[in-house]
Design a protein around this nucleic acid. Structure first.
Length: 1083
RNA sequence: GGGGAAGUGUCGGAAGUGGCAGACGAGCAUGACUUAGGAUCAUGUGCUGCAAAGCGUGCGGGUUCAAGUCCCGCCUUCCCCACCA
């Protein structure tokens, strides 16, 4: 036995032994409870980095812990091996993607082995091998058969750099950039395959059967975004028949969902108007007279306020309703909208654009004739691609209406009762302000230009508004008007009050105002006029639910039932129906790339879309392909692959050359591990199952799944969808693939150093007041003068900075000086001729993600070579809150090194002579049971950092206890338990020490230790005594002492008595026997 | 603009249901053993103060005998979504 701890010797030794013995082979054993622990599989990019270790080692520790607890644990590993980087490597370096990928996998397997994980490598599954992707293809066929796969031409997100389409989930942020390469994507009309994930939208919103983090559940819920509302059908009032088009009503039943399922969709027929499954299913029961225009709204209660409609520029109806004189402008707008990428469309600073079509629709609730516009703020991909605009209760519609002079009529009462009024200077008679004051109405008077004082009035509630109207009528000067906005919309003229309650009144009121005060003549609506006054801005529209107003017989309907009542009424009259809409789109799985699983479909000139028979799978990816420098898929030009015969008629057919999104392969990999490359040599059939059902019955679903939260709306949504589809196919009998999910955080690069500053100034107590600062850039560290702290000068690296001070490291050792900044102080910064400000000084702790270009990557291989895998594993558990992560700290690992060495020494070395530390048996026992308890509970709860902390404490206790107890039976038990607790964390060292103690192989197959709660109880407890909330003393009492005893002891304490002097004791409480709280009063 | 998470020493971070804030480490300081120390061991280490004591969990209020934890109002940072009707 080598005495010094030498991980470089023992780690490879035990890894080889475990491998040879098949220690980590997982075999179905119905006599034991199973535990399927899964950690996300890596993409073989060529290097396992520290992030993989951070994700995987705690998962491995927990799997080992579960195993020692008596579970039969499955902890497999594989590779998500299709994908773009392999293809790019092929293009750039002329290596075949398969060669590149398999070589990377080989290397990464070796790296993973050095981690000492309990992976059952016999279950390894690699998604790019035919034995794997054959079943990915099989699942495609199954989904197609089930109507879950369909093909359609649709505007899809296309990345010009990756030369492929992307799923909506792979397009990121406001800029709409490609998830993989950051290139802005644009919309392209392409025939693509989709999977009907939307069928499961509601079920995917149900998380009641799984224990997943709130964060993920929320992200998925927001992504799916269920909106309850109604579809309402408007009629276009005049039919324009042009271009010789005769459109029957059926032509307007746009995007019937059923019509696009699989084979029913005539994929080759491009003559038909563009169909889109996102467009509404129009209820055939609805009366069909002229053109129907169906909108989706979450606010049917605002229908009376719909003063215009807006169609998406791509809406198929636009062509047919646009009147000839508007055709040119509409066409131009459509072209402009189409040419713009989504980025441009969205980054127009929200300035609304749009054009009028010349057409009108009839509002079904009041028969109002309202104009139909087109605008790019209405998206073809959501709802029906058309909206009814209610400008009084939607900020977008409001902005649009104000810009284009469309009427804005409030139809929902304000819930806060807020109303405002502005009395123009000179419009009211003397004494009005006093009258307002007497009435208790809130207002401020302020000069308006040089016109005199205006009154800015804020009103609350109807009673106050009524009183105000009465006062205003009494004081209004002839030839003026006054208006109230917000909770009431009233214009007060000298001859009466006119409410703004309809489009007609809007026009009438405006005409009167223009007559009275010509400067407002440019306004097209009352609301436009009112919006010119900033004081009114926050009262002009609101989006809350409130009582309906100006809505015919529905006026007065309370806000909490309005939506439902209107919806029911619409349904009764056949004008609409309750509908639920989702933001979730169907999953676009087609990728125009080579390195993916082929889509097993052929296109026959006579039969159309024909699925490849199950028996003919796999459709193999040809190896002999020429990669285009452009990235275009070589499959399109591979004659042997492209041409085939139709399985139906035997005629000529061409293969689908698109491949599947790699997320398809990773959506079912947890099942692939059950029996990798299942029945590879036998043909598959329609009724096959892609894995061994005996294994499946035992192992799945996954009990604990660990991995990154960045997959919240992609992988983690897709894999749930897959399992629900598999359930409906009768292949699995549960609803959720992963019962428990936990996410680790990200390890970031080590903090960058700050600038070096040289500060002149003077000391002000403990801080240094700066008079001038000179900066040496952090980039030129080699030229920095040494740190210094003198009477008039302070120099060193800036560790932290806030508005008023810098923290400067003023000695090599790390001593910090607080430098107080002066506002007027000169700051000399290289490259800034005029000098800078303190804000320009860069400080330490700027943390970035690790990346090769930033040269801040931590290489795990080097760490393993230096410290050993056990130490690295333990440090990754100890250094951060696991679910949070944080910047790498190359220094911090030393504490773990010391702990590991200490454990080693405790077990292998006899106590030094002359050691005098003592610890009672009872205390040692207590420490042991406490360690077992806390390590067990913390492992269960993913509290990995405190697992190590408790193990460190335990090692410290053992170190102290060693001289007194070494060689005793208790000592033996104590170190045996130490090794058992350490085994999941540091498997190699634990195994080595286990052998050293002469115990039987292997430590990893031992039972997890248990604790006895009775052992945790102390004989005596120390209880703090608080007086008015401040700790003034401590008393030690027997653990079983009663409250009265504790009270008496507390009051007898010398320091407590001192503080009670001259005080009157009001109350003494002893909650839970945890502390004594004494309440006193002076004198 | 909407939603979420988080703010605790120099740093990473501890603190079931309100109950001694700062566990365990890193760093730093002092000492011991050393040719040496980036090894090891010991001691100390929230801030102010000689001390008594006071102040301390982003800021300001509140509830309570007692608040990092609960309530109200702000500030900052990070993440997700974003013209979704």
């Amino acid at each position: 036995m080598p005495n010094p701890y030498n991980p470089q010797d023992i780690e490879p030794k035990w890894q080889a032994r475990w491998d040879a013995d098949g220690l980590y082979k997982s075999v179905v054993d119905h006599s034991k409870p199973k535990f399927y622990a899964l950690t996300m599989l890596p993409y073989p990019s060529g290097d396992i980095h520290i992030g993989h270790w951070y994700a995987m080692s705690p998962s491995d520790v927990r799997a080992r812990f579960k195993r020692m607890q008596g579970y039969n644990v499955l902890f497999p590993m594989g590779f998500d091996a299709f994908g773009l980087p392999a293809e790019n490597a092929a293009i750039q370096r002329g290596i075949h993607p398969k060669t590149w990928t398999l070589a990377n996998i080989e290397r990464e397997q070796q790296q993973l082995r050095t981690m000492g994980m309990m992976i059952d490598w016999e279950r390894e599954a690699i998604s790019c091998l035919p034995g794997y992707y054959r079943w990915s293809e099989w699942l495609f066929l199954k989904f197609y058969e089930m109507g879950l796969a369909y093909r359609k031409k649709a505007p899809v997100d296309y990345c010009p750099n990756c030369k492929t389409t992307l799923a909506r989930e792979q397009v990121i942020g406001e800029e709409h950039i490609c998830e993989r390469c950051g290139t802005p994507v644009f919309k392209k009309d392409l025939e693509q395959w989709f999977w009907r994930i939307t069928k499961y939208a509601d079920e995917l919103l149900d998380f009641s059967k799984i224990d997943w983090p709130d964060k993920i559940r929320l992200a998925q819920t927001n992504w799916i975004q269920r909106s309850e509302g109604a579809e309402v059908t408007f009629m276009v009032d005049e039919v324009i028949s042009n271009q010789g088009l005769v459109i029957g009503n059926q032509g307007l039943v746009i995007g019937n969902q059923e019509s696009v399922i699989g084979e029913q969709e005539p994929v080759t027929d491009h003559q038909l108007p563009v169909t889109d499954p996102q467009l509404p299913v129009t209820d055939p029961q609805l009366p069909v007279t002229d053109y129907q225009l169906t909108v989706f709204t979450t606010r049917p209660d605002t229908l009376w306020g719909a003063t215009f409609m807006v169609l998406s520029p791509e809406h198929p109806l636009v062509e047919r309703i646009t009147k000839p004189e508007f055709r040119e402008a509409v066409k131009a707008y459509q072209v402009q909208a189409a040419r713009q990428t989504e980025i441009e469309r969205m980054s127009t600073e929200k300035e609304k654009t749009g054009v009028f079509t010349g057409a009108y629709a009839i509002n079904p609730v009041n028969d109002a004739r309202i104009p139909i516009w087109i605008a790019d703020y209405v998206l073809i991909t959501y709802g029906t691609g058309a909206i009814m605009a209610v400008p009084a209760h939607d900020d977008r519609d409001f902005a649009f209406a104000v810009k284009f002079g469309l009427p804005i009529i409030p139809v929902i009462d304000r819930v806060d009762g807020l109303a405002k009024s502005f009395a123009f200077p000179g419009s009211v008679r003397e004494g009005f302000a006093d009258a307002l004051k007497d009435a208790g109405i809130e207002f401020t008077a302020a000069p308006v230009g040089d016109l005199g004082e205006g009154l800015f009035v804020t009103l609350r509630g109807n009673a106050q508004i009524d009183r105000y109207i009465a006062l205003m009528q009494a004081y209004l000067v002839e030839g003026n008007w006054n208006e109230i906005v917000g909770a009431r919309w009233a214009f007060i003229f000298s001859d009466g009050v006119r409410e703004l309650d309809s489009v007609e009144s809007d026009a009438e009121i405006l005409a009167r105002c223009k007559a009275i005060y010509p400067p407002v003549s440019a306004n097209r609506t009352c609301m436009e006029m009112l919006s010119n006054l900033p004081f009114y801005r926050d009262a002009l529209y609101h989006a809350e639910y409130g009582a309906m107003i100006n809505s015919g017989k529905f006026s007065g309907t309370p806000g909490d039932v309005a939506k439902q009542r209107v919806t029911e009424w619409l349904a009764e009259r056949g004008r609409g129906k309750a509908t639920i809409n989702y933001r979730l789109r169907d999953w676009l799985i087609s990728r125009q790339r080579y390195w993916g699983a082929p889509i097993p479909v052929v296109y026959c000139e006579t039969c159309g879309v024909v699925p490849v028979p199950y028996e003919d799978l796999p459709v193999l990816l040809p190896d002999d392909v020429d990669f285009m420098p452009t990235g275009e898929s070589p499959l399109k030009y591979h004659e042997g692959f492209l041409h085939t015969t139709c399985p139906k008629c035997g005629g000529h057919a061409t293969r689908e050359t698109d491949t599947m999104d790699t997320f398809v392969c990773s959506s079912w990999y947890q099942y692939a591990y059950l029996s990798p490359y299942y029945r590879e040599s036998e043909p598959a059939h329609a009724d096959s199952i892609p894995w061994d059902t005996e294994e499946a019955k035992y192992w799945v679903p996954v009990d604990t799944y660990t991995g990154g939260a960045e997959h919240a709306v992609m992988h983690l949504l897709y894999t749930r969808f897959f399992t629900k589809a598999l359930r409906d196919a009768g292949i699995v009998n549960f609803d959720e693939p992963m019962l428990q999910l936990r996410n680790q955080g990200t390890i970031l690069g080590e903090p960058r150093c700050g600038d070096c500053v040289e500060v002149t100034g003077a000391w002000e107590g403990a801080a240094f007041r700066a008079e001038g600062v000179a900066v040496y850039s952090f980039k030129d560290q080699a030229t920095w003068p040494p740190a210094e702290r003198g009477a008039t000068l302070v120099r060193g690296e800036v560790i932290d900075r806030d508005d008023v001070s810098l923290k400067v490291q003023t000695s090599e050792a790390g001593e910090l000086t607080v430098v107080l900044l002066n506002e007027a102080m000169p700051v000399a910064i290289p490259g800034k001729e005029k000098g800078g400000t303190a804000k320009d000084i860069l400080y330490h702790l700027d943390v970035e993600k690790m990346s090769k270009s930033k040269k801040n990557v931590v290489a795990p291989d080097e760490l393993v070579a230096q410290y050993g895998a056990d130490t690295v594993r333990a440090y990754l558990m100890f250094g951060w809150r696991w679910e949070q992560g944080g910047p790498w700290d190359s220094q911090g690992i030393e504490g773990v090194v010391r702990w590991i060495n200490r454990v080693w020494n405790i077990v292998t070395e006899a106590p030094q002579a002359g050691a005098t530390e003592t610890l009672s048996e009872r205390e040692l026992l207590r420490a042991m049971h406490f360690a077992v308890k806390s390590v067990t509970e913390d492992l269960e709860n993913f509290g990995f950092n405190t697992v190590i902390a408790r193990l460190m404490e335990y090692a410290n206790v053992l170190n102290k206890a060693r001289s007194a107890h070494y060689g005793s039976a208790l000592w033996d038990e104590a170190i045996t338990n130490l090794l058992l607790l350490v085994a999941p964390v540091a498997p190699h060292m634990a195994e080595e020490l286990w052998a050293f103690l002469g115990k039987s192989y292997s430590v990893h197959t031992q039972a997890w230790p248990t604790w006895n709660p009775a052992m945790l109880v102390e004989d005596e407890i120390e209880i703090p005594v608080q007086i008015n909330g401040k700790v003034r003393g401590r008393v030690t009492v027997p653990a079983d002492a009663g409250e009265e005893v504790i009270k008496a002891a507390a009051l007898a304490d010398a320091n407590v008595q001192r503080h009670l002097e001259g005080q009157q004791v009001l109350k003494v409480i002893v909650p839970n026997k945890k502390l004594v709280s004494i309440v006193v009063k002076g004198k």
